[in-house]
Computed example of a mutant assay.
Amino acid sequence: MTDLPPGAPIGHELPTCARHPDRATGLRCTRCERPMCPECLREASVGYQCVDCVSSGQRSVRRPVTFTGAAYSPTIVATYALIAVNVAMFALTAVLAGSVVDNQRSDLFADLVLWPYGVADGEWWRLVTSGFLHFGPAHIALNMIALYVLGRDLEPAFGKVRFLGVYFASLLGGGVAVYLFGGVNTPVAGASGAVYGLMGALLVALLRRRLNPGSALGVIGLNLVISFSLPGISLLGHLGGLVVGALVAAGIVYAPAANRNAWQSGAVVAAFALLVVLAVVRTGQLA
């Protein structure tokens, strides 16, 4: 026998749960009004709704998007992943070199650093892998702090995929700039090109949102002055990353609303394609 709930009319059978036909119930979903047992109901803003209506309502709710068209998520994942990879590479080269200060003495560092002659000889990966190497603890600390500060603002605004697109395009842009115009026998390493690309992306994003770009311009200007003033800094890598990052970001934030994802993907792919072509042309000149 089934106990009747308080207030149920005596002499009338209770309906069965729409999801569990073997269970009698005096409860109903306030949305679809189907009889439901307590296990199949969830508390809603007004009354209780069945799990089917709750699931349907969640699918129909549009997730908020940013001005780039990315689904908004405050969770930072890509930035932390990039920092982790850079720190892991630094730790590995330091262990192999037997020195934290002179980690560039490891064979792995020598195999991955941006050495233009090596790139011309077919070691093309140096254009990318050099962006995950750093000369000593101060070098990586400054770059990772800058990456975190920029990433915590840009990644939620651009979305993880678009953010990574800007980052890697800037990284490659810095490497190609060094390969095109730098000394052919001078090794270069660091995530600075990618970081400068994020600076350029931040400036473009502020302009797109019609916000005051003064702080971004000040940071970029100060860093460029430092790049010009201090010896041993790859100015070409910084400028290449800055220009490419700004251009790719512009292609993302100013993409037409119609087919926006296609336009944004095209901007990123076009940047990579152009950089590859420039690198191939340079290789032909050095061969």
Rank of each mutant, 00 (worst) to 15 (best):
G47W: 10
A246K: 05
S55G: 12
T30S: 14
G159H: 09
L235Q: 09
S45C: 09
M144G: 00
Y48H: 14
A97P: 06
F272G: 00
C32F: 02
N185D: 15
A169M: 13
V119G: 03
I83H: 02
D22R: 02
T186N: 11
I76C: 15
L275C: 01
A258D: 11
D153T: 08
A246C: 08
R152T: 09
E13G: 02
P187K: 03
G26W: 00
E155P: 03
V100Q: 06
V225W: 13
L206R: 15
A271Q: 05
K160A: 15
S234H: 11
V204Q: 08
F90D: 13
P74G: 12
W263F: 11
T129E: 04
W263L: 04
L230H: 06
I226K: 15
L41I: 02
L82K: 05
G214L: 14
L211E: 15
L239V: 12
F132K: 02
A138Q: 13
V87T: 15
R63H: 09
P21Q: 01
P21C: 01
V280T: 05
G131I: 08
V149Y: 06
M144R: 00
R42T: 11
S73W: 04
L224H: 01
F67T: 09
V225Q: 04
S55K: 09
T93A: 11
L108G: 00
A81R: 10
I220H: 08
P137Y: 02
V65A: 12
L133K: 06
M36Y: 02
C17F: 00
Y80N: 14
I233E: 11
P74M: 12
L239F: 02
A262N: 02
V149L: 15
I233Q: 14
Y179D: 03
D111W: 04
A97V: 06
T30E: 12
S60T: 12
M199A: 07
V243L: 13
G214Y: 10
G118P: 03
L82N: 06
H139N: 08
R59Y: 10
G165T: 07
G245E: 09
I252R: 08
A273N: 03
C37P: 02
G11Q: 02
M144F: 01
G57F: 01
S56E: 15
E155T: 11
G131K: 03
V268F: 07
V276T: 11
A44R: 13
T25V: 03
S130K: 10
V281Q: 13
T66A: 12
V77M: 14
G173C: 12
L203V: 07
Q285T: 05
R59Q: 15
T93N: 14
A270N: 01
Q285G: 05
S73F: 06
V51N: 11
V204C: 07
N185V: 13
L112C: 10
V95E: 06
L206F: 10
L239Q: 03
D102E: 13
V119W: 05
Y48A: 13
V276Y: 05
A71P: 03
C17Y: 00
L217R: 08
T129L: 13
V65R: 15
